[in-house]
């Protein structure tokens, strides 16, 4: 008896997202979704790696602005840290701190999106468009799809912030915050491979 009640109490206090069966199922379901996302990005990476050599004159090496990419990488990495700090505040049951860290995460997400939009705009002016070459098509499909994920994450977390302000941390809202944190980390994980495979390997000319 004391075992069950102890564990229950412990879960509600330290891992509220796993306190209910629904919460545990949401977390598990989300991991399966992330497995599917891995496959989705895998196909886009495969397309890019296979087609990036077909560039009709516009070379990755001359195109990419590494300073911009470095800043974008720094922003997204930092936003992943602030999102884990939000999850830690969730585990401490501190709704106010959690919301503050989520707000920082959203601001960083917006900055990243701004940089990416500027970057695409810049490339299009240099003659690197979605339809200019197979390199262009696969580049915009892969990087643009990642950007769409960032945009979705920013919108999602913004809505969660509003809900968090109204309802606080409960066993019902906790899984949502936890799962949004996982999603945001996953976006950063995908970006690590994008900046390695697309930008750095493009710069090397491999």
């Amino acid at each position: 008896m004391s075992h069950a009640s102890h564990e229950g109490e412990n879960k509600i206090m330290h891992q509220p997202e796993k306190a209910t069966l629904e919460g545990r199922n949401k977390v598990l379901g989300f991991w399966l979704f992330l497995g599917g996302e891995t496959v989705l990005f895998g196909t886009l990476f495969a397309t890019f790696i296979a087609l990036r050599g077909e560039s009709n004159g516009v070379l990755a090496k001359d195109l990419f602005d590494m300073t911009l990419v470095a800043i974008a990488t720094f922003i997204l990495l930092t936003s992943s840290l602030t999102s884990v700090l939000a999850t830690q505040a969730l585990h401490r049951g501190n709704a106010k701190q959690m919301i503050n860290w989520l707000i920082v995460t959203v601001i960083l997400g917006f900055s990243f999106l701004g940089l990416e939009i500027y970057e695409f705009y810049h490339y299009v002016h240099l003659g690197h468009t979605f339809s200019s070459s197979p390199f262009g098509s696969s580049f915009y499909a892969l990087v643009g799809f990642h950007g769409a994920h960032v945009a979705l994450g920013v919108a999602w977390i913004t809505i969660l912030i509003v809900q968090g302000m109204r309802k606080g941390i409960t066993t019902y809202t906790a899984p949502k915050f936890y799962v949004a944190g996982l999603y945001w980390h996953f976006i950063d994980v995908v970006w690590v491979f994008i900046f390695t495979v697309v930008y750095l390997m493009g710069e090397v000319g491999f």
Partner: peptide, 23 residues
């Protein structure tokens, strides 16, 4: 995190298959 790890490993396996096949 057993299912989480399994899910990601399966996803990664399919991903590598896609990359190798496409290339």
């Amino acid at each position: 995190h057993f299912y989480a790890i399994t899910g990601l490993i399966v996803g990664t396996f399919v991903m590598f298959t896609c990359v190798i096949m496409a290339v």
